[in-house]
Design a binder for these strands. Structure first.
Lengths: 227, 227
DNA sequence: CTAATTTCCGAATTATATTCGGAGAACACA
DNA sequence: TGTGTTCTCCGAATATAATTCGGAAATTAG
């Protein structure tokens, strides 16, 4: 593990150091994503990054630390991205639909990252006490905020526990993604976005929304890019 | 790996062999359940079982094979058990409630088994092509049958995809269990059974059930034996 | 240009899964 | 019961891969 320099670093230093660190992380995503934590080797990651095995230990404490570093870096970039996509969308259910679509789409485009997060890290026993967990919390927080917004605007039942509702959303989405990751990935993930959203909306919505309003909120249509 | 005997085995043989195999499996549940696959050692399992390391390889191909053998054996015993509990319950929603309760209760009482299945195996990349996966399918089949029954009796919307509905149930339950396993397990899992069931029922039920009938189906109360 | 510091990595070390070879137990059969 | 055969078990050897160590090369400071 590299010691922090004892003087103020100059910019070149910072840049070059993060260059190499990023290169390792990038190879780690690739190799962990393809082979899984167990079957990936430090030697394989080092070779992919074009460096010596021991160099990895200058930047990461050990193999598990490297694994857990992946989502910390990436999730930080993800949250501004999803927030950006969410802009201008009005109503909790429309936001939820967009969020689910965005998430499935992202994993479909970045299966290596998805594998690391959902197959390797989510069930890692040390996970809950890591920085990676904090990063994930910020991401899941978005769902929580959507549900609370729905309760405030009156479209989501006040009496449901927002944390339970989040578990329902997150659990279902992740379960669908995990199955996709473990299968041959031939089918599209995004196709689940709308039917799943419809089911969730039925679960959450206040009873007064039955009837006229219902059709527009839970239509069978594809995710509407105009919206 | 032990070779199959080339003559008909006598009963003593069968008994003794399965005795030792069961002892190894029992220690495997304990050690894998406590430490996880990665941190568990063959030496540790052998020691717990009171045998030599190499003996494990007489019964299991390798460490992963041992891990995957755990649910195969246990799930076989589970399915008759849950079917037994399900007897005499009428109506899809009442069955669903009972099933969720039973599942959460089982994991709360057998966290070692739950850890192995949900933290180690569910996200194992070879899982889908193993016998363990087949065993799990039989278990999840129960949920599918309940949903189909609901559609036939008219309480569950005909237009929803039964597989998606199952993903919603299974995903939510497993997500709640995984969080519980990773946390300190101080709180009770069973407390989630009824609120979760209520949410799921709201998601699945046909619209005609709104109003009078709704209260009895999705009440906060316990599983209704009269229906 | 020289000394100090930092970065990098080949080689040694360590941990642990897996295999090997054979001792001893159980068995088959006379 | 005696003897050859098969099965069960495991201590010791091997193999693989993570991690550490020590020093060479590169960079920086002055």
């Amino acid at each position: 593990m590299k010691k922090k320099p004892n003087l103020i670093q100059n910019l070149n230093n910072i840049t070059r150091e993060s260059e190499k660190k990023k290169r390792i992380l990038s190879s780690a995503i690739k190799v962990f994503g393809e082979k899984g934590f167990q079957n990936a080797t430090i030697a394989g990651i080092a070779k992919d990054a074009g460096i010596g095995d021991a160099t990895i230990y200058e930047y990461f404490k050990n193999k598990e630390d490297l694994l857990l570093a992946v989502p910390v870096e990436i999730t930080k970039e993800l949250i501004p991205n999803i927030n950006d996509h969410m802009m201008g969308i009005k109503g909790a259910f429309n936001k939820l639909r967009k969020f689910i679509w965005w998430w499935l789409n992202f994993v479909e485009k970045n299966p290596g990252y998805g594998s690391i997060v959902l197959l390797e890290i989510k069930t890692n026993r040390t996970y809950v006490s890591t920085e990676a967990y904090q990063a994930a919390r910020n991401f899941y927080q978005i769902v929580l905020d959507i549900i609370k917004e729905g309760q405030e605007e009156g479209t989501i039942k006040k009496e449901i526990d927002v944390y339970l509702a989040r578990s329902l959303c997150v659990g279902a989405i992740e379960h669908i993604i995990i199955r996709w990751l473990l299968k041959d990935r031939r089918y599209s993930l995004i196709q689940y976005a709308d039917p799943l959203t419809d089911l969730l909306i039925d679960s959450f919505k206040t009873l007064e929304l039955e009837g006229s309003e219902r059709m527009s909120l839970t239509s069978k249509g594809k995710c509407n890019p105009k919206e």
